[in-house]
């Protein structure tokens, strides 16, 4: 059985092909202004890596992420909260708590022993403490995202960033820069600030080991370090790229659905043939 999962996030798109137990990751792409087109591009990458030529060769596809409802080649869509939990549990069954920090959202989830969501919390409305926040800070500090995430920039004397709002925090950082505060102190302060917010979300669902981080911000080693410090527990590294966890979870759901419902292969479903686009 070959199935697919595609995650159209606020900033990047990721797709995965699941062939038996083999997880084949696609490529992380920036989203375009057309979610359906983005989904096609992302899936095309994963299909290429799997040596497949068309989405019609997949038995079932689940879409997740902001663009999930516009992914017309998918058989169904499932929320990214369920998908991240399922994906992380699939590759690491000991996981019980997840923090997913993406481009625009921050979510915490508690996971049961069976990989289902026991509870979740999500940031309300504002993008403070998400990937966007880091983008803004990297621009102000002209250090790029690599500079923000580098463990080389972890300081023992972090600057204190008090504002929760990205825009006001940017003003604070500009003041610190102009007061000659060392870059590492500012960067550590930024990561601690985001870790504080994420820690608050995690505590609402309950912090139970193993704890893992998923989403694009899981690439930020400085943030993971800050979060471990804030929570007092280690953040486990997942064996599969954590940024793909939404897509992995979607693919695992696709396999479950295809197996359970003995789903009709995609290729025989006339409703979707017209919407395959470039895939």
């Amino acid at each position: 059985m070959i199935v697919g999962g595609v995650d159209i996030g606020s900033t990047t798109a990721k797709a995965v092909v699941l062939r038996g137990d083999e997880i084949i990751l696609g490529t992380i792409l920036r989203v375009t202004t057309k979610p359906e087109h983005t989904a096609n591009l992302a899936m095309e990458e994963a299909l290429k890596k799997a040596g497949l030529s068309s989405v019609q060769e997949l038995d079932y596809v689940v879409a997740t992420g902001y663009g999930r409802q516009k992914t017309t080649f998918a058989n169904e869509n499932i929320s990214e909260i369920s998908c991240h939990a399922r994906g992380a549990w699939h590759v690491c069954p000991s996981v019980r708590t997840i923090i997913d920090i993406g481009g625009q959202d921050c979510k915490s989830m508690s996971v049961t022993e069976k990989g289902t969501v026991a509870g979740f919390e999500m940031n309300d409305r504002c993008a403070a403490g998400t990937g966007r926040f880091f983008d803004v800070m990297a621009k102000v500090l002209t250090c790029g995202y690599d500079g923000i995430s580098s463990l080389q920039n972890v300081s023992e004397t972090p600057a204190h960033i008090t504002s929760q709002c990205s825009v006001f925090a940017e003003s604070e950082v500009i003041s610190l820069v102009n007061n000659d505060v060392p870059l590492a102190d500012i960067i550590t302060g930024i990561n601690l600030s985001v870790a504080g917010r994420a820690g608050g979300l995690l505590r609402r669902v309950g912090v139970k080991s193993d704890v893992v981080m998923t989403g694009g911000c899981s690439r930020n080693a400085g943030l993971i370090h800050a979060l471990e410090k804030a929570l007092g527990v280690p953040i486990l590294m997942l064996p599969v790229d954590p940024q793909f966890m939404g897509a992995v979870g979607a693919a695992v759901f696709a396999r479950d659905k295809a197996t359970a419902a003995k789903a009709v292969p995609v290729a025989t479903q006339p409703a979707k043939e017209a919407s395959h686009g470039t895939v």
Binding site: Y66, I78, S79, E80, I81, S82, D105, T116, V117, A118, G119, F120, M122, N123, D124, R125
Partner: peptide
């Protein structure tokens, strides 16, 4: 969830509602 009088951030809202329904239906 917290909202304004006029519904805003509908994308986030629908994600949360969908995830909630997925857990309720389980």
């Amino acid at each position: 969830f917290e909202t304004d009088y006029l519904p805003s951030s509908v994308g986030q809202l629908t994600t949360r509602v969908q995830a909630f329904l997925e857990t309720v239906r389980r």
